[in-house]
Design a protein around this nucleic acid. Structure first.
Lengths: 110, 110
DNA sequence: AATCAATATCGTAATATTGCAATATTAAAA
DNA sequence: TTTTAATATTGCAATATTACGATATTGATT
């Protein structure tokens, strides 16, 4: 066990992990893609797009919102959710950065 | 319950969710960043970089490998892992695409 | 062959996630 | 005001994840 073994994770590592975890279920990826395809905020038929019951979809939406991937809220019987562009931007930038750094590296053995 | 409620997820949705899930823990993000920083395949001191015991790190490596984010293997007491560039490329492309499509859309209410 | 160093696997406990039926909440409509 | 439509919350069972001590495996070294 090395000397750095008690260190915690960086803020970036925690942020990326949190966003990635939120996208770590196909239903939540499908929700993001649906919000993208609708190009509007009010979209009360998300449930119809998924092979899941309404409470389950509601839970997935909650997770996406907690992670900051979507924003908005509900007023009565009208839902108003949309993608939080900043979260997508963070992920886009993060993976583009890794990709760029990989491209600069020397060839690997595996 | 709509007519499309029994559909499954697309291949893309399943792939992205699987990769995202693998990155859904800060330890695994830290492993990826460490592999990137080392710029070499043989890197037997991953355990020293993380606040986790060796079996736990081994499990995280296994998850990353199962998801296709890293490749390589072990020969005796030598570890040989590195980032699978294709997986990073998939994520980079996916989020860049979403970002681009978001930029084209009309302003939202939330 | 016996030992060593490094990593994987097993077993297990604690915690988290997933999914849904039942119920609650909310604002609009009748 | 009662009803209705849409979404959230609760409660609970099943499953998955996380973490680690103990042990196994593996290939090199002595």
């Amino acid at each position: 066990m090395g000397a750095t073994n008690t260190l915690h994770y960086t803020e970036t590592q925690k942020t990326v992990a949190s966003l990635a975890k939120a996208l770590g279920h196909p239903a939540r990826v499908a929700i993001i893609e649906y919000l993208l395809s609708v190009d509007a905020c009010i979209c009360g038929d998300i449930v119809d797009e998924l092979p899941l019951a309404q409470p389950t979809v509601s839970q997935h939406l909650k997770q996406l919102k907690n992670a900051g991937l979507i924003k908005g809220n509900v007023e009565g019987n009208a839902i108003c959710y949309c993608i939080d562009e900043q979260a997508i931007e963070k992920l886009k930038t993060y993976f583009a950065n890794i990709s760029g750094r990989l491209a600069e590296q020397s060839p690997k053995c595996c």
